[in-house]
């Protein structure tokens, strides 16, 4: 009887310990599943936003000027989900909407822009100098730059880089707008 009493609290502790371990493991599992689901939702949202934007063509004097609504998703993903999910979401979005609405050229240009944009945004975030708006501005400008690099290579004409002067202005304004919007959304919507 006394042995039983002695053992019981021990086994209880053990059990409890195992249970907490299990629950923490379960929590991680949910986190992973939730992350996967969120990646899917974000990719879909980004695709819808880039499709919406293509429905309302705002053409200015110089090609390449656009708002970049899909970048909203990229920025929120980068802040809330991390770098790896952001890359998955961006690449997924570009390849899927490229196949659905565009062609190989569009995919190559978009990938180059997104790659440089995400690289710059991830680096800038490390230094913590700028808020979400600054990150977004630099991301937009880097996006334009990445696409111009591809244009220079494809067209074998370096003079195209002059377009950066115009795209830099439009990218800064669009990036600021998207950044402020992303900041407001992240203030009001919680993901975890």
């Amino acid at each position: 009887m006394s042995r039983f009493l002695e053992e019981n609290p021990k086994s209880n502790m053990k059990e409890r310990h195992e249970r907490t371990l299990e629950s923490s493991r379960k929590k991680e599992q949910i986190k992973g599943n939730k992350l996967t689901a969120l990646c899917g939702v974000f990719t879909a949202l980004a695709m819808i936003l880039s499709y919406l934007e293509s429905l309302v063509p705002i053409t200015f004097a110089v090609p390449g000027i656009k708002l970049g609504l899909a970048n909203l998703v990229t920025i929120i993903a980068l802040h809330k989900l991390g770098l790896k999910p952001t890359i998955i979401i961006s690449v997924g979005r570009i390849i899927l909407s490229g196949i659905l609405f565009g062609n190989v050229t569009v995919i190559i240009y978009s990938l180059a822009g997104a790659a440089l944009s995400i690289l710059v945004m991830a680096l800038v975030r490390l230094f913590k100098i700028f808020t979400v708006t600054g990150v977004s501005i630099l991301g937009a400008v880097a996006h334009n730059l990445g696409q111009l690099f591809v244009a220079v290579i494809v067209l074998e004409n370096v003079n195209i880089m002059y377009y950066f002067l115009v795209l830099g202005i439009s990218g800064t304004i669009a990036g600021a707008f998207i950044g402020i919007l992303a900041g407001m959304i992240m203030r009001n919507i919680h993901f975890r």
């Binding site: 700028f130 808020t131 600021a176 402020i180 900041g183 203030r187």
Partner: peptide, 9 residues
């Protein structure tokens, strides 16, 4: 509350 815009931006 994370700041949305700063002087740096």
């Amino acid at each position: 509350k994370d700041k949305i815009i700063s002087i740096g931006d």
